[in-house]
Structure formats: structure tokens, C-alpha cells
Amino acid sequence: MYSYIKAKLVILFTVLLVLVGCDNKKEQQPSVKTVTIEHSQGKTEVPDNPKKVVVFNTATLDIMDALNIPVTAVPQSDVHYPTFLSKYDSKEYTNVGTLFEPNYEVLSSIQPDIIIAGGRANDAYNKLNDIAPTISLDIDYNNFLGSITQRTRQLGDIFHKQNEADKLLADFNQKIEQLKQKTSTAGSALVIMVNGGKMSAYSEKSRFGFVFDVLGFKPATTFQEAGRHGNAVTSEFILSVNPEWLFVLDRDNAIGNKEAQSAQQVLNNELIKKTSAWQHNHIVYLDSTSIYISGGIQTYSHLMDQIDVALQTELAH
């Protein structure tokens, strides 16, 4: 009897040691540090300085590229990246579908630490968030400068690039201030996008309102609606508002459609030739792929370079 009780006690003691050991292991495991990010779809806790990073939002990818943040996977199917982001077409990065339709099977196999969605992938947010913590760092065009500043700083916080973010924003703001000194007396402007031979115009607080909201060009006209797809206009309308500067985006060129009329062909007509912009050689064909497909800090920095060259040419005359 004594031996039986002794054996039972030994077994119980051994079990207790195992349980205590397991608890100690749990206590010793380091907790994963996280960062809480407020974004266009809510608030999300994401890993601090994540390593496996998937990016669907091209505007965010633009900023991340400027901050030298490593990326694991991006959409590559039917994506026409601008030249400065063309490296993301390479096999170095895993293809996770299109900008609109993620490849969930590939995403699950990657097991990402974080997914950065938003932009064209907004509708996929819930499914993406089931795979990994997902944030949508969209830029608010009603508050462009404040919004792009916030998004850049958030990326700096997540990926330990705070100093780089400060430097990037300082250079960006300096370029804006230098250009605004020239735009204040440059005259009125109109921003149009040509798509399939038709034209749409954009004014303040719109998708392409940067020229007015940030750079300070005077709008040649205003629109009640600032819809994402702009306001349909004709050559007659453009002549009637008669802008001194005409900034042009070519959507077909941006998406790689070689069959449609180019923006230059569409604008080459007798009505546009009567405008002040045409007669003073103030029609600027912007880097459409960069602005339409991307839209981060590098994009708008390039846009400012283009406009600065045009203004310098005017001043030289």
C-alpha cells in the first residue's frame, strides 16, 4: 500500500513540474509588439516593423519606395507601373493579383505580417483582413497635404523610418513653397483628363486638385461636383473658360492603351487653338502613368518638376 501511494505521489509531482515548466515557457515567450494605426477603414493593430509586407495601394507603394521600405509582394497582373516603380514588375516580388482583385490563394501561402490595401483594393478589405492585419492608407483629396503627411508619418512609425519620413516631408514641403512663389502670378489653370477621345475637367478638392489646392493656381472655373471621374467638358467649354494654363492627363497612355487617340490629337483642333493656353504654349502634358496609377510623394514631386520647367521657360521669355 505504501509503495502504491508513493508511486502516485511521484506521478503527481512529475505532472506538476511539467505544468509549471509549460507556464514558465509561456511567460518567457516575448509578446509581439504592435502599433495602432488609424486608417480609412478604422483602427488596426499591426506588427511593429513587419517583415512580410504586401502592398496593393500604389500611392502607398510610392511613399514606401521613397522611404526604402522592403516589400514582399505587389499586384503585377494588368498593372502599368510608372517608370520609377517599374522594379515592382520583377520576379523579385511575388505577384498577388491585380489592383482590384487579389489572389487570395497566393496571399494565404505567403502568410504576410501586414497587408496595405486601400485605393482600388478597398472592396477587398474584409477578405484581406481575414488573412493578415490590413490597413487602408488612402489619401484624402479634401485635405491632400495634411493627409499625405499623416500617411508618410504612419509608415515611418510602423517601419522605424521616422527620420527618413521627416526628411522626405521636409524636402517635399520645401519644393511646394518654392514653386508657389511662381504660381501666384502665373494666371488661371484648368486640369483635364483625356480618355477615349473624351475630356473631363477637375477643380479644387478633387482627385487631381493638387494644382489648385497645394500649388495655388487660380481655377479657370469651378464645378459643383468634384467627382472621382471629373466633369465632362468639350472644346467649346474649354474655350469659354479660356484658361491661361492647361494641365493634361492622358488616361489611355497611363493604362497602356495604344489604340485610342492621344491627348495631343484630341486637343489639336481649332477651338483649343484659340485658347490663351494654346497661344502662349502653356499646355503641359503631365506624366499620366505616374499620376493616374500611383499618386504618392514621388509622383507629386515629379509633377512639380514638370510644372517648374514650364514656368521657368515662360519666365525666360
Results as ranks from 00 to 15, higher is better:
228 R>H: 07
240 S>M: 11
237 F>K: 12
226 A>C: 00
186 A>T: 12
204 E>A: 06
215 L>P: 00
232 A>Y: 05
221 T>M: 07
160 H>L: 06
192 I>F: 00
165 A>S: 13
224 Q>L: 04
160 H>Y: 08
236 E>R: 14
175 K>R: 11
177 E>A: 11
237 F>W: 13
230 G>D: 11
195 N>K: 13
241 V>N: 12
210 F>N: 05
166 D>T: 09
205 K>V: 05
226 A>L: 05
161 K>D: 02
159 F>H: 12
239 L>P: 05
198 K>I: 05
179 L>G: 01
190 L>M: 14
190 L>W: 01
165 A>H: 03
228 R>L: 12
172 F>V: 04
172 F>K: 08
195 N>T: 12
227 G>E: 09
180 K>E: 02
198 K>T: 15
183 T>H: 04
216 G>C: 09
170 A>M: 05
165 A>Q: 00
209 G>P: 03
205 K>F: 08
215 L>V: 04
177 E>Q: 12
188 S>V: 04
227 G>W: 03
168 L>M: 10
236 E>M: 15
173 N>E: 13
220 A>P: 13
166 D>I: 02
222 T>L: 04
235 S>V: 10
178 Q>K: 11
161 K>W: 08
168 L>V: 05
181 Q>L: 11
194 V>G: 00
227 G>D: 09
241 V>H: 11
166 D>L: 06
184 S>M: 04
230 G>F: 03
168 L>I: 06
220 A>T: 09
238 I>V: 15
177 E>V: 14
185 T>A: 09
157 D>C: 06
215 L>K: 02
159 F>G: 07
179 L>D: 09
226 A>S: 10
240 S>A: 14
162 Q>C: 05
230 G>R: 04
209 G>C: 09
217 F>C: 07
172 F>R: 10
163 N>F: 07
206 S>L: 00
168 L>C: 03
210 F>C: 02
228 R>I: 09
232 A>F: 04
208 F>Y: 15
228 R>M: 09
197 G>R: 06
231 N>L: 04
218 K>N: 12
162 Q>V: 13
215 L>Q: 03
203 S>M: 01
170 A>F: 03
173 N>D: 11
201 A>T: 03
171 D>R: 02
195 N>L: 07
178 Q>W: 01
175 K>P: 06
191 V>M: 12
195 N>Y: 02
157 D>T: 15
169 L>A: 03
205 K>I: 02
205 K>T: 12
209 G>V: 03
171 D>C: 00
226 A>R: 08
176 I>P: 01
172 F>M: 05
221 T>P: 15
197 G>T: 13
216 G>S: 09
194 V>F: 00
162 Q>T: 15
199 M>K: 08
224 Q>V: 06
230 G>C: 08
207 R>Y: 08
161 K>C: 07
240 S>P: 11
210 F>K: 08
231 N>P: 06
184 S>K: 14
215 L>A: 01
197 G>V: 12
173 N>I: 10
205 K>L: 07
210 F>W: 12
235 S>T: 13
184 S>L: 01
181 Q>M: 08
204 E>P: 01
167 K>T: 10
228 R>F: 07
224 Q>A: 06
166 D>Q: 09
233 V>K: 13
176 I>M: 03
173 N>K: 15
193 M>N: 06
233 V>C: 14
216 G>K: 02
174 Q>F: 05
